[in-house]
Amino acid sequence: MKVLAAMSGGVDSAVAAARAVEAGHDVVGVHLALSRMPGTLRTGSRGCCTIEDSRDAWRACDILGIPYYVWDFSERFKEDVVDDFIAEYAAGRTPNPCMRCNERIKFAALLEKALALGFDAVCTGHYAKVIEDADGNRELHRAADWAKDQSYVLGVLTHEQLKHSMFPLAETPSKAEVRAEAERRGLSVANKPDSHDICFIPDGDTRGWLEERIELTEGDILDVDGTKLGTHPGANAFTVGQRKGLKLGRPAPDGKPRFVLEIRPKENTVVVGPEQLLAIDEMRGIKVSWAGRPIPEVGTGEEFDCMAQVRAHGDPVDARARVEAGADGRPELVVRLIEPMRGVAPGQTVVLYQGSRVLGQATIDSARSALRPEPAGAAG
């Protein structure tokens, strides 16, 4: 099989490519140049997709004896990931850029180009598993190592994309084993730190980065009953669940801290309240997609049991979900949580599971707490 190995410059993608070579596939390595500042270097474990990473990817391909190329996807990355990130925050939502990158870059733009060039599959170092059912349909499942499982950020993959996806690290029991294997293979990235934070904000200061790109206008901070408690420099600079930086002159009546419950960008207001109101019981999602063939209940509109996860490394919680038509006629996902979940914000992604299988995902449009009569997600 002709395989295009996406080489990030990290240890996971290097070992994944090595395993694809060892399995007898015809492998070509490619590094995606996503940064529009090619002189940027990573700082320790912050950021990725830099010149340093490109060189590390080249060294790995050289040791593996496979061709190596760099493809410039920086313009597409800026439009589909960076600009989307800014627009979502400007609309008062909390986006997940890793989901957008996997959806629009690694498994849309990259896969599309790979197939056009005659490749059969794209291989990545993600910790996730693709399984075929009895009819040959592909399903996305959690990896063997739940601590490193990355199926959440792959929840946007479609059935067609799963047909051409290869994850050689699926059954690896731990990251330590991957590093040890890299060492045995003579790969210089064996002990390279994992990247974290948002790759295009390598210093980790998301708020400061956004303040340079979103026009902020002073507005009101309100209590849940609409009482004005203070002012803020701009609603877009806040996120649901935030506690620090509110700068309210007076404490709550019970003396306990207040948290951001809701952001209303159209009114330029921030709603704050007690911590218990962050516990969400129900969420509604838009931009729904299914990882593989949808389960029958999706077509019938019946409610089904599942588990819901809203962060890459968050704990899944028991839930009941159903699909219904939204106001615009497009499908919406309604998820009722059996146990409330804290700090859910519009713009985040909810991924549904049954056992280890990823069913699909949606972008959270609104979220509500049963302790608060009106929806908590009116933002947008």
Rank of each mutant, 00 (worst) to 15 (best):
V153M: 10
F238Y: 13
G118V: 02
L216G: 03
R19L: 13
P173H: 10
G234P: 06
S45F: 04
V21L: 04
T231Q: 09
L4I: 11
L34F: 13
V153A: 09
P97T: 06
A170Q: 10
D56L: 14
G285H: 05
I201K: 01
V310L: 09
E177L: 08
A134I: 13
G360S: 06
E267N: 03
L229H: 05
G255F: 01
L115D: 11
L333H: 12
P331A: 13
R258M: 13
D254P: 12
W71T: 01
S8D: 03
M37R: 14
Q242I: 08
E212P: 01
H126N: 07
V298C: 01
E103I: 11
Y69R: 05
S35I: 04
R142P: 00
K192T: 03
E302K: 15
Q242V: 11
R59N: 14
G377H: 09
F73G: 04
G10M: 09
R46G: 05
E262L: 09
A143G: 09
R213A: 11
L222C: 13
M99S: 06
M99W: 09
R142C: 15
R250P: 00
R76L: 15
A23W: 02
H25T: 09
P193C: 11
T363W: 00
S165H: 10
A20L: 06
H232D: 08
R284Q: 06
E374Y: 01
E211C: 04
S174Y: 05
G360N: 07
G9W: 00
R357K: 15
W209N: 10
P373Q: 02
R311L: 07
K266I: 05
W290V: 06
P375R: 07
A23Q: 06
G47D: 07
G241C: 08
K175C: 08
G301M: 11
W209Q: 07
R372C: 02
T269H: 08
A237T: 05
R76H: 14
R59V: 13
G92Y: 01
G301Y: 11
I364Y: 00
E267S: 08
R93Y: 03
Q361T: 10
R207T: 10
H31P: 11
D26P: 13
G44A: 12
P296F: 02
T227A: 15
L277N: 03
G347C: 05
V344M: 01
C101K: 00
W71S: 02
D26M: 13
A17G: 04
P257E: 07
R179D: 10
E374K: 08
K287L: 05
G118S: 01
P233G: 12
T40A: 12
L333Q: 12
V298H: 00
I66S: 02
E218T: 03
G347Y: 00
A312F: 05
A325Q: 15
K228H: 00
Q161D: 05
L371Y: 01
T231N: 10
Y127D: 07
K78T: 14
Q161M: 10
S45Q: 03
C61D: 15
Y353V: 07
Y68I: 04
A134S: 13
V334Q: 09
V81L: 15
A176P: 00
E211W: 08
A291E: 12
S54I: 06
D281C: 02
V310I: 14
E282K: 07
R19F: 09
R36W: 00
P265H: 12
I338V: 11
D197C: 01
E339M: 05
G299Y: 09
